[in-house]
Write a protein that binds this DNA or RNA. Structure first.
Lengths: 109, 109
DNA sequence: TTCCGCTATTTAGTGATACTATCTACCAGT
DNA sequence: ACTGGTAGATAGTATCACTAAATAGCGGAA
């Protein structure tokens, strides 16, 4: 990723992953693959795994080990009530920031 | 600021300040005050000054010392050609990210 | 005069987060 | 046995916003 994108993902990637989990349970490799499809082509694998560990420790997700047909068992993450609450906070923070930045963009000729 | 906002500002605050400078020259204290008015009430002073030092070192701004009626001289920053180019990159990165996040938000019930 | 408040900048140290790079582990097909 | 795709873990690095404190100039109140 470019340096700009890397910095901008700090704080937002967490919300992005929580939003993906809001749609339904998923595991790390799957989440990374989806993000890559959506244009985050150079997103590092390790970044997503580290983030998942973090949100697990903070109690935003429930985890279940599920055997895989190919490869080692998957750790499937499900957003729980606390995670949904935190996601709501994220949308609030995002909205505030996005509105102000869009305002600044409008002012550019 | 809340922890979420602090993390989300990483990478975006730089663009915000450059966008402010795009509208015309300004100095640190003034920029902080404007941002506070616009809702970033708990934005730390030191943060803006550190950011200004950074963008000066990266050559995005020209600096001029201007005497103040009250207090020590102001360091007035002007966005130069290189800074305007970088700001354009910022808008590109921001648009990409904002579009994908808004897409995720639409999918939430 | 002395002190306080507002203006204005600087800087040392901390914490959070994405990255690089590498390692482990499992299975299928050649 | 070897390769490639799937799946996860982790040690170390860089960047950036924050905390906290210091410096400095000026005006008005005590």
């Amino acid at each position: 990723m470019g340096k700009q994108m890397t910095e901008m993902l700090k704080g937002t990637l967490e919300g992005i992953v929580l939003a993906i989990l809001f749609a339904g349970p998923a595991y790390g490799y799957e989440i990374t693959a989806r993000l890559r499809e959506q244009g985050f082509v150079h997103l590092a694998e390790g970044t997503v795994y580290a983030l998942l560990v973090r949100i697990e420790q903070r109690g935003f997700v429930d985890v279940e080990k599920v055997p895989s047909e190919k490869g080692p068992p998957r750790k499937v993450y499900s957003l729980n009530a606390q995670g949904r609450e935190y996601l709501e906070d994220f949308w609030g923070t995002w909205s505030f920031l996005a509105e102000r930045i869009e305002q600044l963009r409008k002012e550019r000729k």
